[in-house]
């Protein structure tokens, strides 16, 4: 049994169909990077997994448990376990602007997990130390650079000890010189063995962090392979077209 199993996922926005029976499996040690043209449903997939979107059909299993069960009437039943097992980082940071860095990190553990304040604080300081953000602990989000904000957002998700991390275009909103610090932080997590699903437009980063790259287009997986195979020797015509275009643009 795979670590993540997505079977027959159906997702529509009104009459616009994103997925009509989407399947994807991921092993425990994997770092899956999703690539593909914009609008192909990469971000939507992560949002469905996090329970941010209603789905119209299919199942998503994590570690053998169904946690989102699609139904034909478009309503879903969502098991609260999802948020306990999965962490997510967004493109636009989504830090809480009225709370300090420490406040952002401690809110969920203290208020919804019943962790003692002092314990949460120690853990938060540990994480910030690890990310080189310890001296920013009492700053507010508006006082941080984009790269720092995004690393705080990663730390905030890690506070809940997720078994899987979702990264939704986390470097897309950043100035180029700030991208590296966020990517390095993700690399460090990867070396620690954290399973991840990553949506990114940065092909070099995709190649270096992924254990498996998934190329998807129009709501379907076109090709999935190890990074060296997919980038070095793509099997599908459409994959080759896509890679030629993006790599050409990147120069």
């Amino acid at each position: 049994m795979a670590f993540v199993e997505i079977d027959g996922l159906v997702k529509r926005y009104g009459s616009l169909s994103i997925f009509e029976g989407f399947d994807l499996h991921m092993e425990n040690a994997d770092r899956l990077v999703l690539i593909g043209p914009s609008g192909c449903g990469k971000s939507t997939l992560l949002r469905c997994m996090m329970g941010l979107e209603d789905i119209a059909g299919g199942t998503i299993r994590l570690g053998g448990d169904d946690y989102i069960q699609g139904a034909t009437d478009g309503r879903m039943t969502l098991d609260r376990r999802v948020q306990k097992e999965v962490g997510m980082v967004f493109q636009h940071y989504t830090l809480f602007p009225h709370l300090s860095v420490l406040g952002n990190l401690c809110l969920a553990p203290v208020r919804s997990r019943g962790v003692k304040k002092s314990e949460a604080r120690d853990k938060a300081m540990g994480l910030l130390e690890r990310f080189g953000l310890a001296e920013r602990a009492n700053f507010y989000p508006s006082q941080l650079s984009g790269g720092q904000k995004q690393r705080v957002a990663i730390a905030r998700a890690l506070m809940l000890d997720p078994k899987l991390m979702l990264f939704d275009e986390v470097t897309s909103a950043l100035d180029p010189e700030l991208v590296v610090e966020v990517e390095n932080t993700m690399m460090e997590l990867a070396e620690g063995g954290m399973p991840m699903m990553i949506v990114t437009h940065d092909m070099h980063f995709a190649r270096s962090i992924a254990t498996k790259v998934v190329f998807q287009e129009r709501g379907k997986v076109i090709e999935a392979a190890a990074p060296d195979d997919l980038f070095g020797n793509p099997q599908q015509e459409r994959t080759r077209d896509f890679l030629r275009n993006v790599l050409h643009i990147e120069g």
């Binding site: 941010l52 997510m88 636009h92 989504t94 809480f96 009225h98 809110l107």
Partner: peptide, 29 residues
């Protein structure tokens, strides 16, 4: 911003916590 609500869901914050600790303080400010 709607993304603030997304963040609350992603962190598994219960409705009450979301309202009292995230939404209300921001609305007041």
């Amino acid at each position: 911003d709607a993304s603030q609500f997304d963040a609350c869901i992603a962190l598994g914050l219960p409705q009450g916590v979301q309202t009292v600790f995230v939404i209300l303080p921001q609305a007041m400010l």
